[in-house]
Amino acid sequence: MLREKLKQKILSEPTKCIAYLKELVKFNRIYEGEVLAIIMAVIKNGPDQLTNRQWDVLLDKGLLPDLYVECDRCEDTIPWSEMYRAIFIARDYFCPFCRCIVYKKNERLLD
């Protein structure tokens, strides 16, 4: 189910997804050659040009193992613009709303 939901999110927000894929490439987060080649094709031509096999590789070997997450707190989708932060910077797997709520609660505990 998550696989099909992710594919639809990519197709419905291609520009935002491509910006995230560019971040992954820029910071050397793609380690598999075939996945990198497909990501480069998406960046160059858009996701609507992918074959079924390329979709399988992109989703199963590329994004779903650890490069796409849903919020650990509310289980909602994380915007593409916040995905890199949630996985690699904050490492909390929270959407922006939940991150704000959690950190505000933590600040109050310190007061």
Results as ranks from 00 to 15, higher is better:
residue 1 M to W: 05
residue 1 M to G: 13
residue 3 R to N: 07
residue 4 E to T: 11
residue 4 E to R: 07
residue 5 K to E: 14
residue 5 K to A: 11
residue 8 Q to S: 11
residue 9 K to N: 09
residue 9 K to Q: 10
residue 9 K to M: 06
residue 10 I to W: 01
residue 10 I to Q: 02
residue 13 E to Y: 05
residue 13 E to R: 05
residue 13 E to Q: 12
residue 14 P to S: 06
residue 15 T to K: 14
residue 17 C to M: 11
residue 18 I to Q: 09
residue 22 K to S: 08
residue 22 K to V: 06
residue 22 K to N: 13
residue 22 K to G: 05
residue 25 V to T: 08
residue 26 K to C: 04
residue 27 F to W: 14
residue 29 R to S: 05
residue 30 I to K: 01
residue 32 E to R: 14
residue 32 E to F: 09
residue 34 E to Q: 13
residue 34 E to D: 09
residue 34 E to R: 15
residue 35 V to H: 11
residue 36 L to E: 14
residue 36 L to C: 03
residue 36 L to M: 07
residue 38 I to A: 02
residue 41 A to Y: 07
residue 42 V to M: 11
residue 43 I to A: 06
residue 44 K to D: 14
residue 45 N to Y: 12
residue 45 N to H: 10
residue 47 P to W: 03
residue 48 D to N: 14
residue 49 Q to W: 05
residue 49 Q to Y: 08
residue 49 Q to N: 10
residue 50 L to A: 03
residue 51 T to C: 08
residue 51 T to H: 05
residue 53 R to M: 10
residue 53 R to K: 14
residue 54 Q to T: 03
residue 55 W to D: 00
residue 55 W to L: 00
residue 56 D to K: 13
residue 56 D to Y: 09
residue 57 V to R: 03
residue 57 V to W: 00
residue 57 V to P: 00
residue 57 V to I: 15
residue 57 V to A: 02
residue 58 L to P: 02
residue 60 D to N: 15
residue 60 D to F: 07
residue 61 K to D: 10
residue 63 L to E: 03
residue 63 L to H: 04
residue 66 D to P: 03
residue 66 D to F: 09
residue 68 Y to H: 06
residue 68 Y to P: 02
residue 69 V to C: 10
residue 70 E to C: 08
residue 71 C to Y: 01
residue 71 C to V: 00
residue 71 C to R: 00
residue 72 D to P: 02
residue 72 D to V: 05
residue 72 D to C: 07
residue 72 D to G: 13
residue 72 D to E: 11
residue 74 C to D: 02
residue 74 C to H: 01
residue 74 C to G: 01
residue 75 E to K: 15
residue 75 E to Q: 14
residue 75 E to F: 13
residue 76 D to Q: 15
residue 76 D to C: 09
residue 76 D to I: 01
residue 77 T to G: 12
residue 77 T to N: 15
residue 77 T to L: 15
residue 78 I to F: 01
residue 79 P to E: 09
residue 79 P to F: 01
residue 79 P to H: 03
residue 79 P to S: 10
residue 80 W to P: 08
residue 82 E to W: 11
residue 82 E to Q: 08
residue 82 E to Y: 10
residue 84 Y to C: 07
residue 85 R to T: 06
residue 86 A to E: 00
residue 86 A to D: 00
residue 86 A to I: 00
residue 86 A to K: 00
residue 87 I to M: 01
residue 89 I to K: 13
residue 90 A to E: 15
residue 90 A to Q: 12
residue 90 A to C: 06
residue 91 R to W: 04
residue 92 D to P: 01
residue 92 D to R: 11
residue 93 Y to M: 10
residue 93 Y to H: 11
residue 94 F to E: 14
residue 95 C to V: 03
residue 96 P to Y: 01
residue 97 F to N: 13
residue 98 C to P: 08
residue 98 C to W: 04
residue 99 R to I: 00
residue 101 I to K: 12
residue 102 V to I: 15
residue 103 Y to A: 07
residue 103 Y to F: 09
residue 105 K to T: 10
residue 105 K to P: 01
residue 107 E to R: 12
residue 107 E to L: 15
residue 108 R to S: 12
residue 109 L to Y: 05
residue 109 L to S: 05
residue 111 D to Q: 13
